Computed example of a mutant assay.
Amino acid sequence: MPRPQGFAYEQHDATAAVVITHHGRPVTTLRGPRADRFLQEVRAGDAQLVMARWTGNYKRGNERAARAHPRNRGAR
């Protein structure tokens, strides 16, 4: 699986918000305790992986199993 890339974040002190961007486009905005928890995680680990996880922009490994689910069989 390729390593996530292209993520960045901006911390806005005036509003206590964190904006996560992907290739320059805003993906999500975190405020309050969620922003604090995100900043702790991003400083402690691989920033790109943390941002990919927080935005939901990463493969979860269940795509093949989901394709075989009865609900999704006719959607091809």
Results as ranks from 00 to 15, higher is better:
Gln40Arg: 01
Ala35Gln: 00
Arg3Ser: 07
Arg37Cys: 13
Asp36Val: 13
Arg3Pro: 03
Val19Phe: 10
Arg71Ser: 08
Arg71Gly: 03
Ala75Tyr: 05
Gly61Glu: 10
Ala52Asn: 00
Gly24Cys: 00
Arg31Gln: 11
Tyr58Asn: 00
Gly45Tyr: 12
Tyr9Cys: 05
Val19Met: 07
Thr29Val: 08
Arg37Trp: 12
Thr21Cys: 02
Phe7Ala: 04
Arg76His: 15
Glu41Asp: 04
Tyr9Ala: 08
Pro4Ala: 04
Gln48Trp: 08
Asn57Thr: 06
Pro2Glu: 06
Asn72Ser: 14
Leu49Thr: 13
Ala66Cys: 10
Pro2Tyr: 11
Val27Ser: 14
Ile20Val: 15
Pro33Asn: 04
Asp13Glu: 12
Ile20Glu: 01
Val42Glu: 11
Arg64Gln: 10
Tyr58Thr: 09
Gly6Thr: 04
Arg73Gln: 09
Leu30Thr: 12
Arg53Asn: 11
Asp36Arg: 11
Arg37Tyr: 13
Ala35Ile: 06
Val27Ala: 14
Asn62Leu: 06
Ala52Val: 02
Ala75Ser: 15
Pro26Gln: 03
Gly32Leu: 05
Pro4Arg: 00
Arg67Tyr: 05
Arg73Pro: 06
Tyr58Ile: 06
Val42Leu: 00
His23Thr: 08
Arg25Trp: 07
Thr15Trp: 00
Thr55Asn: 10
Arg34Gln: 01
Ala75Val: 14
Ala47Asn: 13
Arg73Met: 05
Arg3Phe: 11
Glu10Lys: 06
Phe7Arg: 02
Thr55Pro: 00
Arg76Leu: 05
Val50Cys: 07
Thr15Val: 03
Leu30Val: 00
Arg25Thr: 15
Gly45Pro: 04
Ala8Glu: 06
Arg73Phe: 04
Ala47Met: 10
Phe7Pro: 10
